[in-house]
Amino acid sequence: LKENFAAGLIELTPFDGTHPFIDPMTGSGTIAIEAALKAKNVAPGIWRKFAFDNFDWFDKKLHPELVEKAKAQEKQDHAPILASDIDQSILEIANVNAHNAGVLQDIKFKQVAVKDFSTDLENGVIIANPPYGKRLKDREAAEKIYEEMGQTLRRLSSFSQYYLTSDPQFEKYFGAKATKKRKFYNGNLRTDYYQYWANKR
């Protein structure tokens, strides 16, 4: 996922950093990193250089002043953010990405398959971008993962859960009908964002 797409997925959830966040299939960590940035109230694009900085009519002091103002509004304390994946090698990439984004200390990475995932946390948000199984040989593996997700994650009923996939049969294999779903395009690929709203404890 691109960073802005992942950030948009998070914006469609109640997550604000005051309750736990879980990405149980984190891959390179994009969703968890964007969640950490939101939890810390880091302004989008705060590290970027912009072309207008070099315009001769632009006040050179204005941009740095606004950056400092934004940094002053950042937060250090937030609820736990967990990111797990079955593949240790890709978790190492996720760690590097989190370090580069300045949020490595804000995310707890762990190697674990989704079928073995467990947590004592409650009343949070789960977002995952599981494999789509677009190729015929990958479809059965993806469907098996959806079943494992359902068996493991449906139990976490106090969490609002959000899953992005292009498989129109996701609900069947997950084992529950979504509260709501929204259509998106991930690049040129049509996907659905399956939303399962929480039963708060």
Score class of each variant (00 low, 15 high):
F5S: 06
D138N: 15
S118V: 06
K110P: 00
P64H: 02
R154H: 06
I31P: 00
S158H: 07
Y196W: 01
A51W: 03
L189K: 04
R135E: 11
K110Y: 10
A43D: 04
K69P: 07
E122W: 07
D116K: 04
F52V: 03
Y196P: 02
E74H: 03
W57S: 12
G175W: 03
P24S: 11
F58G: 13
E122C: 10
K40W: 06
H99L: 15
K181G: 10
A198C: 11
A51C: 04
H63P: 00
D138H: 12
V125C: 10
I127E: 05
W197S: 02
L1C: 11
D192H: 12
T191Y: 00
F184E: 08
N4E: 15
R48M: 00
T179L: 01
G102Y: 07
E143V: 01
K183A: 09
N4K: 08
W57A: 09
T30A: 02
K61Q: 15
R182F: 07
G27A: 03
Y194Q: 06
K144F: 05
A101D: 08
Y196T: 05
K172M: 14
A98W: 01
Y196D: 07
Y163W: 14
P20G: 05
A176M: 09
W197G: 00
F58Q: 12
D192S: 14
E3W: 05
G102I: 01
A7M: 07
F117S: 10
G175N: 07
N186R: 00
K115M: 06
K75A: 08
T119P: 01
R155L: 13
L9R: 12
V114D: 10
I33T: 08
L136H: 09
N129F: 10
Q76M: 10
A36R: 01
P168Y: 05
L12M: 15
L164M: 12
E122Y: 09
S89Y: 06
K38M: 03
V42A: 02
E147A: 13
P20Q: 04
A101S: 10
V114L: 11
K183D: 15
K180E: 15
Y193P: 00
K71H: 10
A113P: 11
D23E: 11
I127F: 08
K71V: 05
N97H: 12
S160F: 05
K61W: 12
E148S: 10
K60M: 13
K71E: 12
K183R: 13
A72Y: 06
A36S: 09
Q105K: 13
Q169M: 09
L1T: 12
Q111K: 13
E3R: 14
G8M: 13
R155F: 12
Y146Q: 08
K69D: 13
P131V: 02
G8K: 15
H99Q: 15
A101I: 03
P14F: 11
D16E: 14
R48E: 00
Q151Y: 06
A39E: 05
I127T: 11
L66P: 09
D138F: 02
F184G: 08
F58W: 12
Y146L: 02
S166Q: 09
T165M: 02
